[in-house]
């Protein structure tokens, strides 16, 4: 699989994403936000971080980077685009995903291990996962409180576009297991064609033996199965 990782000024998880792609045996290339061309990707990862210092709104200024036009074109043609944390925020700002990421209900930056569960088996990203099984994937954000209008939420639910929801260690989706106040415990969503995923948790931080959780590997394996 060929992966392009987009780097913005302020991205700080681009190397993590690059590293995980490499150790899983993929060809990975960084693409600078000012570039006008992608490097023939099968998958684009928009990584976590603080693009443009989170000025104005998280992800708001990144939308004017030249590479974004190419990312949108690639996504509209059905290409796989995965936005993690700040990448998710950017995907909502550029209109590839609906809704917005608001400040956490607690107003605090939250950095912790978090259980999430897949609730959809109908996408490249979630096909290999077991709905109801708790995955330990770290979160690290201050603006991760997913918001969408009531109509928008109904549309996500009806079209089966919610990829991940926050849960407890038993996989139960409860109010107590919601770390940031996200509507309907939403941790990740898909676009209507299910080729674009945005998620607040960081699977690339839980995908090798050196770290506490390896549950992120399941998400990357799911994507890899699509290409084999």
């Amino acid at each position: 699989m060929k992966i392009n990782v987009i780097s913005f000024p302020g991205s700080n998880c681009d190397h993590d994403a690059f590293h995980i792609g490499k150790i899983r045996g993929h060809q990975v290339d960084f693409v600078w936000h000012k570039d006008n061309n992608l490097i023939n990707p099968d998958l684009i990862i928009i990584p976590g971080g603080f693009s443009y210092g989170d000025y104005l709104r998280c992800g708001a200024i990144a939308k004017f980077s030249p590479i974004i036009a190419e990312v949108i074109k690639f996504a509209k043609q059905g290409g796989l685009v995965m936005g993690i944390c700040n990448g998710f925020q950017i995907l909502t700002e550029i209109g590839l995903l609906p809704g917005a990421l608001m400040m956490n209900e607690s107003l605090k930056f939250i950095c912790q291990h978090q259980f999430i569960t897949s609730v959809n088996r109908d996408s490249v990203y979630t096909k290999g996962l077991t709905p109801g099984k708790a995955l330990d994937i770290p979160i690290a954000h201050k603006e991760g409180n997913y918001f969408i209008s009531n109509d928008g939420l109904k549309s996500l639910q009806d079209k089966d576009l919610i990829a991940f929801r926050y849960c407890n260690e038993l996989g139960e989706i409860t109010k107590e297991s919601n770390p940031n106040g996200a509507i309907d415990n939403i941790a990740g969503i898909l676009n209507e064609d299910k080729n674009v995923l945005g998620m607040m948790p960081h699977p690339e931080r839980a995908a090798e033996d050196k770290v506490i959780s390896q549950d992120g590997q399941e998400i990357f394996s799911s994507i890899e199965k699509f290409f084999t």
Partner: peptide
């Protein structure tokens, strides 16, 4: 274009 997010 930039200053406001029409979603919120």
């Amino acid at each position: 274009k930039l200053l406001a997010n029409p979603n919120t």
